[in-house]
Design a protein around this nucleic acid. Structure first.
Lengths: 189, 189
DNA sequence: GAGATAGTGAACGTCAATGTACAGGTTAAG
DNA sequence: CTTAACCTGTACATTGACGTTCACTATCTC
């Protein structure tokens, strides 16, 4: 009963998780074979470390969620809501670029409740700031909070797609996102 | 060589197209079996009328595109750009609800160029109004037009998802979409 | 250097979906 | 009423992905 795995095994597990993250971020339906190839590893090796495609996805998602949660938790949400929003958007944009469609893969491969729990956890990083901004009059509150949260996600996702298709430059995306969201959260007149 | 098909055959073809539209709008990956069941028809019958899944999707998409194009073409785009935008958004929202994820199915089942042609055709319904609104000062022009077009689609899609998940009411969606887009197209200050 | 640990490709069984073939039962249309 | 057109369920071949087994090789660790 070895307590720790061999060095090459650990390295391969890392490679697989990284490759799976990258692949799933692009296409939530990638085959295990492709992930293995991208990781520079035999398909059988992958199955030696992960019981099934589902468990691999689950673990990859778990890691991504953890890192995302840490990254968002490190953002300073105090002070002017608009400035805080900008900081939060910038951090979220980086995560969106990194993980892209991974969320879709998660939705398809995980039990619905588990996914819901994770998703809610991430959304809750946004909620307090949005609520504060609304009550302080920085953001419009003539629309449901839930809709505004959905909108945030949607715009980030849209930007990710636009960059992927080459419609906009990755460098200018952050500015566009911020400019768009800030405007969308401003009531007319 | 019968010139016209029998009445029940025509009726079944209709049922299949309708069912396929509804199913594909919800899930771009529905199986042929499910579509047939939804149409109240045997799977074999479906294959009697459509060579393959791909041709079925293509025909369904073609019909949807044609109806969409007609609906959008009927919208009055003259006068105040803001008012015209509201009319165009309302029409587009109806189409989005009807066809939902059908566009995704099209992307997966059709040759890329053909899809591109169709997509560009639909986008072009928006472009002139957006360009006019920008040059007349009604809409902000400090962001790429392409990004604003992407944003429009994204918001419509987001609303569709939100309604599906029960987050917002279908009745209020149109107002939210318009309120959001109008604000997003307004430059701050 | 020896042995446990890990990696490899090839082969296999399973499963779900696509598409086809067939043998009969229905029904529209003249 | 007759018949050709149509529908149906079952069965089958095919494909692609998943997951496992096996015999063998490579390499980490002590």
């Amino acid at each position: 009963m070895t307590a720790v795995k061999r060095a090459d095994a650990r390295k391969n597990i890392e490679s697989i998780m990284d490759a799976a993250t990258a692949c799933l971020a692009r296409d939530p339906d990638v085959s295990v074979a492709e992930i293995a190839k991208a990781a520079g590893v035999g398909r059988v090796t992958l199955y030696g470390h992960f019981e099934s495609r589902a468990t691999l996805v689950t673990q990859v998602v778990a890691r991504a969620i953890q890192q995302s949660d840490e990254a968002l938790g490190a953002v300073d949400l105090d002070g002017d809501p608009r400035a805080a929003l900008r900081r939060l958007l910038e951090a979220s944009w980086k995560l969106t670029q990194q993980y892209g469609a991974l969320i879709v893969a998660a939705e398809q491969s995980m039990p619905h409740e588990q996914f819901q729990a994770i998703h809610v956890g991430l959304i809750d990083r946004w909620k307090p700031l949005m609520e504060r901004g609304r009550s302080e009059g920085s953001f419009r509150d003539d629309q449901p909070l839930q809709w505004q949260l959905t909108l945030l996600q949607s715009v980030l996702h849209a930007a990710s797609g636009a960059v992927y298709r080459g419609e906009i430059d990755a460098a200018e995306a952050a500015g566009l996102i911020d400019g768009t969201i800030q405007a969308a959260l401003t009531a007319p007149e």
